[in-house]
Amino acid sequence: MLSLRGLTRRFGGLTAVDAINLDLAKGELVSIIGPNGAGKTTLFNLVTGLDRPDAGAVQFEGQGITGLSPERLAAEGIARTFQLGRVFGNLSVMDNVLIGAHTRLRAVKPAFPVIGPLLELGLALLRPASVKAEEERLREEVKAILARFGERLLPRVDQPAYSLSYANRRRVEIARALALKPRLLLLDEPTAGMNPTETAEMQALVAELKAEGLTILLIEHKLEMVMRLSDRVIVMDEGKKIAEGLGEQVRSDPKVIEAYLGHGLSGTAEQESAA
């Protein structure tokens, strides 16, 4: 479904992503682990169009998507969350998640070139029944998505996102990604900064999504979770893929241990004990 070939991104002298190859089959959950600064987030940026590779190619569902704009890729069904959390602070939880459904708006966004945007403006002002119905339907959908997080988000549906707790903001991000009805979901450290209970909830949710058949690429430091969820694990260090395989196999790989030790255990151990 997704395949990366020789994907490379350099920042000045630093090669943040170095000739990465990766294949992801439909319905698979693959985790990417590695110390901080290994290039994981940069890899996500390359796949989602927020950054362009210096070399290499990305294919999605058999089509070359290298260097396409993030807008296009969202429309293709690629959704992501951000490591540091990028919710829309002044928007309510409802509006945040509705933005996730933006690519699925039909009634209000007629697909004509040039005059399409003007019609969109007109329809937004006039709001004929079809537009209202679409908006209503999406709102119901958003509520259903929020319900997946139990009582965490539903009671706060009209609160601005900036007023939410850190963990809730991460949840809003995931809800927003789900509202896109993604074919491929990229999660960048979804449990960063969460306590064990919250992490367990998140893990259960990701497992559920996987069971529903969603294809997922996961960056995660908490190895316990990675081992339980992943079909395969990829280890990155200094931009390179240094190991790939089943969970336990990778964990005992000397190169992996060396990479983590060499970086003073910056990633896993610290974060797990902190959490």
Partner: peptide
């Protein structure tokens, strides 16, 4: 006022708050 309560109001404000996240969700 009507514009602000439509999906356009929402999209405009999303772009203001974080244009990168907005693009990642398909807002041109």
């Amino acid at each position: 006022g009507r514009l602000l309560t439509s999906h356009l109001g929402r999209s405009f404000r999303a772009i203001r708050d974080d244009d990168i996240a907005a693009r990642a969700y398909g807002l041109s």
